[in-house]
Computed example of a mutant assay.
Amino acid sequence: MTTTSLNPVERTALLTAALRSAETLREDRLYSDPYAERLVGDIGPKLLAEVRAATFPADRPRSLPSTPDYNAIRTRFFDDYLQRAAADRQMTQIVLAPAGMDSRAYRLPWPEHIRYFEVDRPAVLAFKSERLDGVSPRVDHRTVAVDLTAADWEQRLIAAGYDPSLPSTWLLEGLLYYIPGADTHRMLDRVAALMAPGSRIAADIVNSAALTLPHMRGLLDVFEGWGCPWVYGDDEPEQLFAGHGFDVRAVQPGEPEADFGRWPDAVPDREIKDVRRVFFVTGRRATGAGRS
């Protein structure tokens, strides 16, 4: 398969692969992804070049967040989170939705009790399978080729072996800013309905100012030009997730647990308004809010 089989949103997964490939080549890398280079396709480097040109302009100081540093921190942060969750013997299921060009199933060690699900559109999973031909996952690995807007994706996930009565850990990485607010609420409701008590969730999300501040236009215009604009942000992610039965906390890149010595910018206090933010959200299905 070629990258022409992927639509604009699907192609952003190639940008992530290109960023992870570049990070792997750094001496001070936060992780190593030996499969990222296979997954960048023919346009991944071009997408990364556009983002770099917008982020690091030759004629003026950087005013946008550093996408390479952000992506490196995000990947490492969620690597660590998923590995901690998997270490709990009561946690038997991990779900990546969407999975994109992620290679955690192949590059990280996983306990034998884990069943690992990747949910994404058929074209994405087909491209990824072809690129990783001959590489064996290091976990009981199940793919679910379905669009997350489909009416039956939950049933497709269950048919692949997911058990809603058992604890699970879900990662919604690189998703929520691409879908409208109403779809975000529906997504969180649908995920929550599949979670047993003791289940965990993780996600990344931007704030509303990140979509409107003038100095963010350079990056926003790149994604809009690709046909996949950022359309949703939330200033209070804890409240957003609480409204769907989750007890979470949100940290920003550059805060002690989400820095790894790489975030180049100051981290403004949460009380300060009209500044761009990105949040890493982690938490659990709230007590008493289990699946009905």
Rank of each mutant, 00 (worst) to 15 (best):
P122N: 12
D147R: 07
I43M: 14
Y116S: 01
D247V: 06
T282V: 14
A151L: 07
D120G: 11
Y232V: 09
H215R: 08
P34H: 13
Y106E: 03
A49Q: 13
A54H: 06
R284K: 15
S5E: 15
A72S: 00
R11S: 00
R60P: 04
S165L: 15
T169D: 12
S136G: 13
W230D: 09
I43T: 14
H244E: 03
D269Q: 14
G290R: 02
L25F: 11
R89E: 15
V51S: 00
V9S: 14
N71Q: 15
F127R: 10
P68T: 00
A87D: 13
A97R: 09
E238V: 12
A289K: 13
E173F: 01
M1N: 11
P137G: 08
L15V: 07
Q239W: 13
A192Y: 04
T287E: 15
A72F: 00
L188K: 04
R156E: 14
L148I: 07
E255W: 11
E224D: 15
P68C: 00
E37K: 14
R104K: 02
R200C: 13
G233M: 03
V231M: 13
P137E: 09
P57T: 02
Q83M: 12
A22H: 08
L219A: 05
W263R: 00
L47D: 04
T212W: 10
M195G: 06
P8V: 05
T4R: 15
D152W: 03
G290W: 04
V251K: 02
D221G: 09
K273L: 08
G174M: 08
G134L: 10
V267T: 10
P65E: 01
A192W: 09
D33S: 07
S165V: 15
L166S: 15
V119S: 06
H244A: 08
Y81F: 14
A105V: 12
M101T: 04
E118P: 06
P253S: 07
D80M: 12
A151R: 11
A72E: 02
L132M: 03
L15N: 01
G100Q: 02
A150Q: 13
G100S: 07
A196W: 10
I158H: 06
K128Y: 06
N207W: 01
R60E: 05
A105R: 05
A202I: 05
R131E: 02
R89G: 12
A36L: 03
L148W: 02
P61F: 12
R270M: 10
E271K: 15
A36C: 06
P111C: 09
L14S: 04
V144T: 04
A202M: 07
E50I: 03
V206S: 10
